[in-house]
Design a protein around this nucleic acid. Structure first.
Lengths: 216, 216, 216, 216
DNA sequence: AATGAATGAGTATTCATTCAT
DNA sequence: GATGAATGAATACTCATTCAT
């Protein structure tokens, strides 16, 4: 389900069960992460990955149907983590937390994630180029929207569903896009940016909550 | 001699003065725009451009020192227009206009621009990959920040310069990033998104203007 | 791992162990030798080499990092042989041989070598143009000088080291330069030239041995 | 005669009579000389020459039928000078000069020439690569042989014509080859080399003059 | 299953020469 | 004559993927 085995050109070919195989897949993904930082998205090639991972090229194709499936798998790893962050601090914790706290928690989580995974923005923006990969991004985006919707429905119960979804979608966009740019080198003042982002999101939601006049 | 450009690896080689040359350069840029939509950033190659433009490859290299200079020239075309939009409705008009009107004007401008230039987001995100081109983006970003600063200084005169610049920079990021994503195909409901963006920006600035408490 | 060569831009990429690989490398070098004669140094291109060798271009790049490395490998083959010739008839034989015999032996060896390898002078002079290759020539030249020094030290023990080296160096130059020109087509009378060269070298050394007056 | 007007692919197309044309041809040759040193033989292209010479490309083709004819013309300039040097100090002077003096004079002349014309060895060795140009070299070589013959006939009147020609030819080879290598950077001790060369040539000729036994 | 040598289509850029103006 | 924009064939090197072993 999460790993559709119907031969989708981007999903992993074979679910590695054997220990060695699992280790190999992990090694491949780790190497790709490193190379993304070291050589850039376009600088990666399968032979290089194999060499750095210490496995033969052929083996890569036992786990992945093609080069892009590797990126996809790495992205999925990142996405799972991001979705978890985006989903917030968990039901019970969230129940006793003001919504602003959730926003702080999510943005801080994104910030920490970005610092932990310098290859993420490179992978993300690289995926835009390959039409097939772009579809994966759309998918992940939808998951982010769903996560946001949970909070929006709670905060803005009187809005139409369409409006709620629009807001959730804008928030997802903000999150993703700014996740990328806030990590990039030109924001050494990353901390300030993160704080400002929290302020922005809160202001946005508060304005909706107070039913602010839109026409002015 | 008059027009020998300092041979920057990205600036055009020769300024086309003759009618035919100007037409050729325009044709090249138009073809690149089309191909960007049709084949994606990585799908473009010089021979293809030449063929579609109906000129020999060699001719491309009379005007551009290399492939990336073509992208750069197209980007510059777009950037000029965007900067003009971002600068707002002009001094006199702006003087008699509430700041919200300026925001509406700019966002609407961006929206119209995006609809007119479907190749823009592809070009923009493609430029991220090529280090040299990335520098161009940084430059343009700075110009956008400057344009935003003018308004911020007027609206939030009591903030520190650093804070003003941070806000202007967030706005620029928002503008650029959302310019890209709001245009992309997955937002057919582009109009709603645009309206929501206006709301977002206004809420953000209003929150700053009212000196909202940040700590909550 | 055993055979990973330090990736010098001119040394072979992979040492061919398998029979087929070794044959391929040999075939490549043989084809380059032929083409050198047929088309000249500048007339050689990698695709042509591949075609004539009956292998795909890509295969060339499995063994050689670039075009010049092929020339270098061929040169090294030649050089090894030449150095061996230059080193003379071997210790024991040399011990029972007048020095003139050694000169005869070396020059005859050069002559035979030249007749066997018509591509050599083309390769040699071609290597002068490519700065990287020129360095290889300097190296080989030094080896030739060392080989000559052995004999010079024996024949002219009273000269200063600097003078001995100068003489050895002139001899090396003579050897190399004349190796090239004596082989070239305009000397069909190659045999006579070879004999004259022996005479020249002997006269030169004898003059030094007799401590001839230089000032006249 | 010296400038065959029959459309030889390497001779100049048109003898420039007009002042401006003569200046242009001279400028072209001077620029080629400079570029030879600056960019190497293969680094020269007609458009670059035209640009550096401050004339349009088309004009080059008014004086020279093709690129190689330019090299040829420059070579001819050099050769004329070299032949003059090689011809010795002039009839009257030579009559009152021991032959050793002539050799000194010629070698010194070659040395001075080499220092004056750093582009010469580059041009010379470059010409080896282009079959057509190689023929020019053969021609010039013959002229050098003729010049040497004059002296050889005087010094070794009893040798057969064939032998005289062989000796003259060896000397020419020595002269040319060593002209190139003695100039090159690896002989900073150029002066010593020059002196050694004089010694070599004198020893060679003296050995012939004394009818030295060849068989030893 | 595992390997890694082999494949060859694909691509940016150059430059001698021409010829319309 | 003079110009210099136009031309396009030519060329080194890469890399995703396969498949014989």
């Amino acid at each position: 389900m999460e790993h559709v085995l119907i031969e989708n050109p981007l999903s992993p070919r074979r679910l590695p069960k054997q220990l060695r195989s699992r280790q190999r897949v992990e090694k491949i993904l780790a190497v790709v992460g490193d190379l993304l930082v070291e050589k850039g998205f376009e600088g990666i090639n399968t032979n290089l990955v194999a060499e750095k991972a210490g496995i033969p090229v052929g083996s890569i194709y036992q786990f992945f149907p093609n080069k892009y499936a590797i990126f996809c798998a790495l992205a999925e790893l990142y996405f799972e983590e991001l979705i978890a962050i985006n989903r917030g601090p968990g039901r019970e914790a969230a129940a006793h937390m003001p919504w602003e706290g959730i926003i702080d928690h999510v943005i801080d989580g994104f910030g920490a994630f970005g610092r932990r995974n310098p290859s993420f923005p490179i992978l993300w923006s690289g995926m835009q180029h390959t039409p097939d990969l772009r579809d994966q991004i759309t998918l992940i985006n939808q998951k982010a929207v769903e996560a946001n919707l949970v909070m929006i429905e709670r905060l803005l119960p009187h809005e139409t569903q369409a409006k709620q979804r629009l807001i959730a979608s804008i928030m997802a966009d903000l999150g993703e896009r700014l996740l990328i740019s806030s990590i990039s080198e030109r924001h050494a003042e990353s901390r300030d940016v993160m704080e400002e982002l929290k302020f922005l999101l809160k202001a946005y939601l508060r304005a909706h909550m107070s039913g602010a006049d839109r026409s002015a």
